[in-house]
Nucleic acid binder design. Structure first.
Lengths: 226, 226
DNA sequence: CGATCAATTGACTTAGCTCAAAGCATGTGG
DNA sequence: CCACATGCTTTGAGCTAAGTCAATTGATCG
């Protein structure tokens, strides 16, 4: 919870508001594959305390058909995610690893945060940032080749998972090829072929299924054309 | 200015804050093709009072090279747009038609709005909505065919330009094929071919270069697969 | 040590891009 | 008011990157 306070800069505001927020937050743990129970009444704001998750667009079709449930984004510890209720093109959050999170009703959260403009402003700035990142990514999705997308994805994961922005780096990918492809608008096969190419060129190695070693992040950045 | 007050729900707050905001807002008019002068010091929030504009991603490369300046979104009267300064993956706003707008320094705006949580909250909710729309669009960009993108684009323009969400509809597109293609991640030629196909199927007609008549918006929605 | 599911590889198809050549609007000068 | 010039738009003919279908390999777990 201390991390949460830091994340939205409660220190700028009164401790009282923080306490109120803690009171309405639901503290939850998810096992890999678990989906955050959908609340159809209200949008929710989720603070991810630890672990990794994927944010899915909720496909239409009430029952089993999996027609068109796509990965919108991956989320890691420290992220604040908004999960919309069904009618408003709802989304859902599925754990990729063991995940600890705090869930708020968006309305309740805003009602309380309104008592502390600093908190509200911090959340606004965070969401404007998020908007910009998403816009940039959207632009890329429309104009990048498969190779650029994969290179960019790896660079981004290196940064978000182990904080590396240059040189060498090695980490476990919490998601499978299928989720990667889905989030980048590519097929599993194309993802795999790109990995193979990068491997042949010595930019990447994959000792196990989910472990990746990036031997030259700067070269990958160049490949990504970002 | 009255429209602006309504847009961000100043009525919920004190008139005083509205007055303060009006004081720091720059009221500007742009002719078609004009670019909003870039402010390198500070991010800006722009309220579009009338007209249409395109939001561009600022390509790197200081000088003339047009390498990679893409259309991120189209904006119409009533929209609030955030234009980021250079270092932060800057963006820029270019008028498509005669445009009237009000420009704020983001920081100044937030400093004042902080005095009125209701305003801050309204802007936050607007930006969370925007984020969700952008995410949804991003997902589509990754997974839709050219035909679906064009159909979706036309449906969206019908809604935003003349408020039509069904039946027949007729309006002037303020942007050329090139901007359309760019915003959808397609080439001019592909855009044109899709228009031709839709024309042959009687879903669309184009009496002049920039005029379009949609004969069946609902059918287009089905085509868009949204 | 198999059983199972994810990842890889291969062969083939295709949507959309590239390059190139007309067609049409829109605007300008005679 | 008409002829021409310019810049969009449309159309055509390949080409290529990525998707599809199908088979194989390899990892992970009971």
């Amino acid at each position: 919870m201390a991390a949460f306070r830091a994340a939205i800069r409660f220190d700028q505001g009164s401790g009282e508001v923080a306490d109120q927020l803690c009171a309405i937050g639901e503290y939850l743990s998810l096992a890999p594959g678990d989906e955050l129970a959908v609340d159809t009444d209200d949008d929710r704001l989720i603070y991810i305390a630890s672990g990794a998750a994927k944010l899915l667009s909720q496909a239409r079709s009430g029952s089993g058909m999996q027609a068109g449930s796509h990965v919108l984004a991956f989320q890691f510890a420290g992220d604040i995610v908004s999960v919309l209720r069904k009618p408003a093109g709802g989304s859902s959050l599925v754990a990729l690893s063991e995940v600890d999170l705090i869930a708020f009703s968006a309305n309740q959260f805003l009602d309380i945060a309104q008592g502390d403009p600093a908190v509200l402003r911090a959340v606004l700035v965070k969401s404007l940032d998020s908007l910009q990142r998403t816009r940039t990514r959207m632009m890329h999705l429309g104009h990048q080749t498969a190779r650029q997308r994969i290179a960019g994805f790896l660079v981004s994961m290196a940064d978000r998972i182990c904080g590396c922005t240059g040189g060498k780096c090695e980490f476990l990918l919490p998601m499978g090829r299928s989720d990667i492809g889905d989030s980048l608008g590519l097929t599993i096969e194309t993802v795999s072929r790109q990995f193979t190419d990068l491997r042949k060129e010595g930019l990447v190695s994959t000792p196990s299924r989910s472990m990746v070693c990036l031997t030259d992040i700067d070269a990958l950045k160049r490949e990504a054309g970002t």
